[in-house]
Simulated assay, not measured.
Amino acid sequence: MRILFVTSTRIGDAVLSTGLLDHLLRAHPGARITVACGPVAEGVFARMPGRERTIVVAKRPWSLHWPVLWGQVATTFWDLVVDLRGSALGWMVPARRRAVMRGGRRPGHRLGHIAEVLRLDPPPRPVAWFAPEDSAAVDALLPTGPILALGPTANWHRKVWPADRFAALARALTAPDGPLAGARPVLLGGPGAEERAMAAPLIAALPDAVDLVGKLALPEAAALLSRAGLFVGNDSGLMHLSAAAGAPTLGLFGPTPADEYGPVGRAARAVVAPDGQMTGVSVEAALAAARDLLPMQVAA
């Protein structure tokens, strides 16, 4: 069986789509899947079983990336085309069956919108794929003992929690009487100067933290997060990857809707600013949510 799976240009939405892919892999053992995604999301699928090919769709002026993608897939007869971009492409390639996501904003979590494409209820939870070599790579970078993973960056500056609050929360969590007593903070973020600049104040505030901002590929980040005692981060692709990897995940939300993009995993929770501003999330509220979240690991 050959499946074409067209998914997001963004890491967060791409991670949320992995639950649908995991469902397809279980429902169709041996299926050969071609994934079409944006450049920054490519690593989400790098270790996916059953992946025959990844087509990186780089945006072009006047939406010319769509004809380019059509030229790469139109000569294959697909058993199933899943198009989460809601584009015309899903209707313009030869296929036995098509599942095209409808566009537009609507109530409910994005995960549910994705699952509706194949009429799945409840929605399958996202997964994070990584290999033994990814685990080995991060093990060489980490200290022994528990770790507190922190994601101080985002794709929009208004989604970034102040560095002094991240630092205060990290100290409270890892204090001798904290829920992660003795854990070592590990700072994570994407590549590039902008992400580095966002993380710089927290790097300075936590000199004993392990600084891995911009230093890991996505499968390596997933491997690291799978062994984290807790992840705390802004609404970002890294937050979704953490929840998919199975880490207890605390997402911090201000101007973006947690009811649509909150983290989904075995132990995941959002802290939402009452005023829609990241400064509205207090250290006390985040600490209380973290204390409530950590016992969920046992029951999840």
Rank of each mutant, 00 (worst) to 15 (best):
M1Q: 12
I3K: 09
V6Q: 14
T7K: 11
R10N: 14
G12H: 00
G12R: 00
V15P: 03
L16D: 04
S17F: 00
L24Q: 01
L25D: 02
P29I: 06
P29E: 04
A31M: 06
A31I: 08
I33M: 11
I33H: 06
I33R: 05
T34Q: 03
V35I: 12
A36T: 09
G38T: 00
A41Y: 07
A41F: 03
E42C: 13
F45L: 07
A46G: 02
R47P: 01
M48A: 07
M48T: 10
P49N: 02
G50D: 05
E52P: 14
V56C: 05
A58R: 13
P61Y: 04
W62D: 15
S63Y: 14
W66S: 13
P67G: 08
V68R: 12
V68K: 09
G71Y: 04
G71K: 02
Q72P: 04
V73I: 09
F77L: 11
F77A: 12
W78A: 10
L84V: 07
G86E: 08
G90C: 05
M92H: 12
V93Q: 11
A99T: 10
V100N: 13
G103H: 15
G103M: 15
R106W: 13
R110A: 12
H113E: 15
I114S: 05
E116A: 06
V117P: 00
V117H: 01
R119A: 11
D121K: 15
P122V: 10
P122R: 09
V127H: 07
F130T: 05
A131P: 13
A131L: 08
A131R: 03
A136K: 12
A137N: 12
V138H: 13
L142F: 04
L142K: 07
P143R: 03
P143H: 07
P146Q: 02
I147P: 03
L148R: 05
L150N: 06
N155E: 11
H157G: 09
V160Q: 10
P162C: 08
R165H: 06
F166V: 11
A167N: 10
L169M: 02
T174W: 00
P176N: 05
P179E: 11
P179H: 02
A183E: 11
L187S: 03
L187M: 04
G189T: 12
G190L: 05
P191Q: 15
G192S: 09
G192M: 06
A197H: 06
A200N: 08
A200V: 07
I203C: 09
I203E: 13
A204K: 04
A204T: 12
A205N: 03
A205G: 04
V210A: 15
V213M: 13
G214F: 14
G214L: 14
P219W: 00
E220I: 09
A221S: 11
A223T: 11
L224W: 03
L225Q: 02
R227I: 06
L230W: 01
V232Y: 01
G233N: 00
N234M: 03
S236V: 01
M239G: 02
H240R: 01
A243S: 07
A245D: 15
G246L: 15
G246V: 09
P248G: 10
T249Y: 05
T249E: 03
G251A: 01
G262H: 01
V264P: 07
R266P: 13
A268F: 14
R269D: 03
A270V: 01
P274A: 08
D275P: 13
Q277S: 08
M278V: 10
V281Y: 04
V283S: 04
E284P: 01
A285I: 11
L287A: 13
Q297P: 07
